[in-house]
Computed example of a mutant assay.
Amino acid sequence: DILNHWAKDDIQFMVNRGLLAGTNDVSFSPDAAVSRGTLAAILGRMANADISGYTKSSFTDVKKDAYYMGYVEWVNTKDIMNGKTSAAFVPDSAITREEMALILFNYTKVMKMNLPAIYAENIFADASKISAESADAVKQLQMAGILAGKSENRFDPQGIVTRAEVSAVIHRFIKLTMNGTLDQGWTQNDAGQWMYFENGTAVKNQIKNIDGKDYKFDIFGIATDISASKPQADTPEKNKETYTVKSGDCFWSIARMFNVDMYTLAVSNGKTLSTIIYPGEILIIPQQ
């Protein structure tokens, strides 16, 4: 059910890294809501948190045998994500976009991560609807390129986060923390619409020639002639062959597999030969 979804690559990244599984053996349910328990598990797995010491739940509504029990204890202990009350975590409740922003921002502070300002600050059209508690988190994560807007430059702070949306956000987060930066140029917002960034600012309200093709951008920076479900291979960067890193892979083994130069492989992906590559990471294979 993700074959033609705009977040297909993001979802595959999450599944490959063991951060988020399908809802059953054949479905991912990309447009279903993300629950508080699931987000706790994602963050704990992302941090490689040791939850072996958590054998009892602090909350009456989190069962001892729930897959997220240890992760709920971890995020609560670290003050990344607390219960709705002292007794209830409400693990099945859906997460809103502003809640996700605040929780991720808390995670960066606990993990001692400094978020870079890669993009210019964007004043969302519905900024007045963002709670005071979450406003700074939204700003910092937007400027770091982790969170983006939706149609008509809305942030949609009370909107429910979907499994596809959290996959895209966490994928950006991991790319940023692994590489120290995010590619600009073509990128998708949190509704899967294509935008183009130059020097941290979206191209808006013009027709721009990019790699020999004209694209029309509306006043909000959305490329109006590219649909949200358009395959990423249609953008210049994505035309190149790619490979998803598997456990045990290294630059030497992948270069040998594709009969390419190991150094060129690393440089083509903005890395050095000493850079660690992780299962689930997508590498561009340089063309001969």
Results as ranks from 00 to 15, higher is better:
Leu104Met: 14
Lys109Asn: 11
Lys63Thr: 12
Ile174Phe: 06
Tyr278Ala: 00
Ser247Asp: 13
Met69Arg: 11
Arg154Pro: 02
Gly53Ala: 08
Gln288Met: 15
Asp136Trp: 03
Gly83Tyr: 00
Ala125Pro: 02
Asn48Val: 05
Gly83Asp: 01
Leu43Asn: 04
Val26Trp: 02
Gln12Asp: 13
Gln184Leu: 11
Val260Arg: 10
Asp65His: 01
Glu121Ile: 06
Leu102Met: 13
Val110Ala: 12
Asp61Leu: 03
Ala101Arg: 10
Asp190Ile: 07
Asp31Glu: 12
Thr264Phe: 09
Asp234Glu: 15
Val138Cys: 07
Val161Glu: 12
Asp79Val: 07
Ile276Trp: 06
Ser134Cys: 03
Ser229Phe: 06
Phe28Asp: 03
Asp61Glu: 09
Asp249Tyr: 04
Asn199Leu: 12
Gln142Asn: 15
Thr38Val: 13
Cys250Gly: 15
Asp10Trp: 03
Ile123Gly: 10
Ala87Val: 03
Trp252Ala: 15
Pro231Lys: 09
Lys63Glu: 11
Leu147Asn: 01
Lys64Tyr: 01
Leu182Ser: 04
Asp10Val: 02
Ile284Asn: 14
Ser27Arg: 11
Trp252Leu: 14
Pro30Trp: 00
Ser58Val: 10
Gln142His: 14
Tyr196Val: 07
Glu133Asp: 13
Phe124Ile: 04
Asp136Tyr: 13
Thr85Gly: 04
Ala66Gly: 08
Ala32Thr: 09
Asn189Ser: 00
Asp190Ala: 10
Thr108Gly: 06
Ser58Lys: 13
Asn205Met: 07
